[in-house]
Nucleic acid binder design. Structure first.
Lengths: 208, 208, 208, 208
DNA sequence: GATGAATGAGCGTTCATTCAT
DNA sequence: TATGAATGAACGCTCATTCAT
């Protein structure tokens, strides 16, 4: 699953702090995705980045928490950059929802390590006092919730609890990442179609 | 959040191996639920169990993996014992599905640590070579999948991919545990009703 | 200045915790006396104790603070055991004062490392938040102060501030340790006689 | 306890080497006084000086030893500049002694960090091979010793060991700094009067 | 005169595990 | 069945210093 010897500046040469940070963040994402959060250490990240000492990581990041936050930032930013134009390209609450689901799954298939790292950090990373480092899917959940609420106000969606729907949708999408991790050849497009079918029905219909 | 001094045999006295194992497994569940998998060590578990040396854990379990498997067994067994009679009490595919969801949420509210530990281990635990320790929700998923498949054969459920539906339902239920952990006062009954509504519509309806 | 290969249990064999702790404390005293507090690390102590890993120190002491407190305890206890019978053997405020000074200097010449370690820890050791680990000469100062106060009440000593006198006496004694460290061949007995002369005059006389 | 943002040139601007050195020395004095010698590092000093990299310290000083020597120089020079005129203003061995003690205590109350740093370095600083970096109070002790010796030759002081008296006086003065550090509101003037009383009696009287 | 980047060595501590009883 | 003692490896982090501009 390793990509390359992690393209970037040849180790040992002085480069800009920005480039070095990006290189380290990339290596951290790879390491977490492959080994899991609990097994990922500065040493493993350094080895993956092709740098000789963990000292360089400590030099560029204030600590493990700081690095993990940078990983979350990078993965989130990449996901948003990927997904936002795809939902901006369609119109209508239901179409946006479908585009959101499909863009998420597409991003997963092209950036599996990003997703894996994001979920792993959210579940595991804690500050020394035990508090979670990040709230899982926090911003994404709020946007989804607002989308559902607005759709309800417009009469497009039925009357459900937008928070429960948002949490369930995100969880279902994240679970797809787990399936992908376990079955590398899985057909994500078909999976996306199924998921769209599930949540179209869940958000519309009358029945209750 | 600690329940008691972890009822069980007073440390230092000779007890049966079975009782000692149960005591340690209980302490491990507490520790994982409170601290998260990555932050849980033999030392923390021993402290919680009120035993002075980690040696006792190594004595009763072949290793960390063995202990984690025992935790998964215990939590799974407890969940099955709680849920099975509740779904056996109702008839019909849809009613069973609703009962399954509601029983799961009810179990969560009475055994939050079991669920937290189960999810945490599933996501995190690996053998030293990086392979996942357990297949996430393996048995539960298969039962759900068969239930959907049978319901489809009976014409009760619409035509969807049973595996995707099963994965999404389990993920949505597990996500409820996360909500519960973050908002201790949340109304799980209402949450369950919402979830039943979502998956009733998702599994029935026509539309596509 | 190293004594021996630090007599004690042969490294690597299992011994009682008490004996091992004493061995480590002894090595720590030697190390601090020779290298100074700032240069003393677990690794240096372990080397001096003839044990192979710093892990054994961490096993027997909760942390560096805990070890330093044990060193202070050991040195203080040894000093008290040496000095107390010597002042109990004489009668009269002035005679006790002289015996106290001379016993202190004698202890210094037989246990120079104990004194050096005691002073070094008092001056340097801090908890992580910056608070001093021990109050220098705390208990000794209180006893001295009371002795002076009682002597004044009996009319044996003149009217001076007992705290200032106690602080100055302790400082003068501790400074003798510095002289001893710098000039190993110094005549401590003569030094003691001089010091007694200084503080006899300081505590008596009329003049003011 | 920090005084200001440590007045001096704003970091990052080109200034004279002299000014920059003074700024760094000032920050080092503050750091040692607050944190203690063992806890003071280039990083802490740089932070206190408001400069971003420890590189600037290494640039202006040959090493840690060199910086510490500069600190000692600065503190000593400041103390001499403060004290010398005060002892030059009085005549007579005893009066000079009293003026010396009182000037020292006065300097302490106006420059507590200087004294703290001076004592801390004297006790702790070592070259890598374990040798003390400076001889504690070396110059001051010699001057004091000569003063006592000359006074004895003039028949003003009784017959005592001038070295022991000098060491004890310096130690008693330095100990006052410790008292001041622990009890910020202490009355240094009264303390000085007491100390003068002690050493007047110690240096004169007959009795022996 | 100044600086960002980089470094190897060492720090105290914790890890799961094994030895010997 | 139990346990105190011991262990090597690895952890994240900080140290004073040097490289190359």
């Amino acid at each position: 699953m390793r990509v390359t010897e992690n393209a970037g500046p040849p180790a040992g040469r002085s480069v800009t702090a920005t480039a070095r940070r990006a290189q380290i963040v990339g290596a951290a994402i790879e390491a977490i995705a492959e080994l899991g959060y609990a097994q990922t250490s500065f040493a493993k990240i350094a080895a993956r980045a092709g740098i000789s000492s963990t000292r360089l990581i400590s030099y560029h990041f204030a600590g493990k928490d700081d690095l993990m936050r940078a990983v979350v930032d990078e993965a989130t930013t990449a996901a948003v950059a990927f997904i936002r134009p795809r939902i901006a390209a369609v119109a209508g609450r239901a179409a946006v929802l479908a585009a959101y689901i499909e863009a998420n799954l597409e991003f997963m298939s092209t950036h599996p390590a990003h997703i894996r790292a994001l979920v792993d950090i959210a579940v595991n990373a804690r500050t020394p006092d035990g508090a979670p480092l990040t709230v899982q899917d926090g911003p994404a959940l709020e946007l989804l919730e607002r989308h559902f609420r607005d759709g309800q106000a417009e009469g497009v969606f039925r009357d459900f609890d937008p928070r429960v729907m948002a949490v369930s949708l995100r969880a279902s999408i994240d679970a797809a990442a787990g399936v992908l991790a376990r079955e590398p050849g899985a057909d994500l497009t078909a999976y996306g179609t199924e998921l769209v079918g599930i949540f179209e029905r869940a958000t519309q219909g009358e029945m209750s």
